[in-house]
Deep mutational scan, measured.
Amino acid sequence: MKKYKITVYDEKTGEKHTIEIEMSEEELEELAKKLAEKHNVKVRIEKV
């Protein structure tokens, strides 16, 4: 498992949230996809 920083940005409201999380790359990609689809936000992932 690796550490990642996830930034979620909502273009409508301008809200931006960043968290650090430790998980596998596959789980992370699935999480990012679900966030983007369900909440209509942009998701950026960076390795820490």
Score class of each variant (00 low, 15 high):
M1N: 07
M1A: 09
M1C: 09
M1R: 15
M1I: 09
M1V: 09
M1H: 09
M1S: 08
M1K: 11
K2T: 11
K2G: 08
K2I: 12
K2R: 13
K2P: 03
K2Q: 14
K3F: 07
K3L: 09
K3A: 04
K3P: 01
K3W: 15
K3R: 13
Y4A: 00
Y4P: 00
Y4T: 00
Y4M: 01
Y4R: 01
Y4N: 00
Y4L: 01
K5V: 07
K5N: 03
K5M: 07
K5E: 01
K5I: 10
I6C: 03
I6G: 00
I6M: 03
I6A: 00
I6N: 00
T7Y: 10
T7H: 09
T7V: 07
T7E: 05
T7A: 02
V8A: 02
V8I: 13
V8F: 12
V8L: 10
V8E: 02
V8Y: 12
V8Q: 02
Y9I: 09
Y9H: 04
Y9D: 02
Y9N: 01
Y9A: 01
Y9G: 00
D10F: 11
D10G: 01
D10A: 02
D10I: 05
D10N: 15
E11P: 12
E11R: 06
E11C: 15
E11A: 09
E11H: 10
E11L: 14
E11S: 08
K12F: 10
K12T: 12
K12H: 10
K12N: 11
K12G: 08
K12R: 11
T13A: 03
T13E: 02
T13G: 04
T13W: 03
T13L: 03
T13F: 03
G14K: 05
G14A: 02
G14D: 04
G14P: 00
G14C: 07
G14V: 00
E15P: 00
E15F: 13
E15G: 05
E15A: 09
E15M: 12
E15S: 07
K16E: 14
K16N: 08
K16F: 14
K16I: 14
H17Y: 15
H17N: 06
H17Q: 08
H17I: 12
H17T: 10
H17D: 03
H17V: 08
H17W: 15
T18I: 12
T18S: 07
T18E: 07
T18K: 03
T18L: 06
T18H: 05
I19N: 02
I19L: 08
I19Q: 04
I19W: 15
E20M: 12
E20R: 05
E20W: 14
E20I: 14
E20F: 15
E20V: 14
I21R: 05
I21L: 12
I21Q: 04
I21T: 04
E22C: 14
E22W: 14
E22T: 09
E22K: 03
E22L: 10
E22F: 13
E22Y: 15
E22D: 06
M23D: 02
M23K: 01
M23W: 04
M23A: 13
M23Y: 03
M23H: 02
M23P: 00
M23T: 09
S24Y: 14
S24P: 08
S24Q: 08
S24C: 12
S24L: 13
S24T: 14
S24G: 09
E25P: 08
E25F: 09
E25W: 10
E25C: 10
E25S: 07
E25T: 07
E25V: 08
E26P: 09
E26T: 11
E26N: 11
E26R: 08
E26K: 09
E26I: 10
E26S: 11
E26A: 11
E26G: 10
E26L: 14
E26F: 10
E26M: 11
E27N: 07
E27Y: 05
E27R: 07
E27M: 10
E27F: 06
E27W: 05
E27C: 05
E27Q: 13
E27G: 12
L28G: 03
L28Q: 03
L28A: 11
L28Y: 08
E29C: 15
E29A: 10
E29W: 15
E29L: 13
E29S: 09
E29M: 13
E29P: 05
E29I: 12
E30A: 11
E30H: 10
E30Y: 12
E30W: 12
E30P: 04
E30G: 08
E30S: 09
E30N: 12
E30K: 12
E30L: 12
E30D: 09
L31R: 02
L31I: 05
L31S: 01
L31M: 09
L31H: 04
A32W: 15
A32N: 05
A32Y: 14
A32K: 12
K33M: 09
K33R: 11
K33I: 08
K33A: 09
K34Q: 09
K34T: 11
K34P: 00
K34R: 10
K34S: 09
K34H: 15
K34G: 06
L35H: 02
L35D: 00
L35M: 07
L35V: 04
L35C: 09
A36I: 09
A36N: 08
A36Y: 12
A36H: 09
A36P: 02
E37Q: 14
E37H: 09
E37W: 03
K38C: 06
K38E: 08
K38A: 09
K38D: 10
K38T: 08
K38M: 15
K38Y: 11
K38V: 10
H39K: 14
H39W: 03
H39C: 11
H39G: 15
H39D: 10
N40I: 05
N40Q: 08
N40G: 14
N40F: 06
N40V: 04
V41T: 10
V41L: 15
V41K: 07
V41N: 09
V41E: 03
V41P: 03
V41C: 11
V41Q: 06
K42D: 05
K42C: 14
K42P: 04
K42L: 09
K42N: 07
K42T: 13
K42W: 01
K42V: 14
K42G: 04
V43W: 03
V43Y: 02
V43T: 03
V43S: 02
V43L: 03
V43C: 04
V43K: 00
R44W: 13
R44A: 06
R44C: 14
R44F: 14
I45V: 07
I45M: 02
I45D: 00
I45Y: 03
I45P: 01
E46T: 07
E46L: 02
E46P: 01
E46N: 04
E46C: 13
E46G: 03
E46R: 04
K47H: 15
K47S: 13
K47Q: 15
K47N: 11
K47V: 15
K47Y: 09
K47F: 12
V48P: 04
V48E: 05
V48W: 01
V48A: 06
V48M: 07
V48Y: 02
V48H: 05
V48T: 06
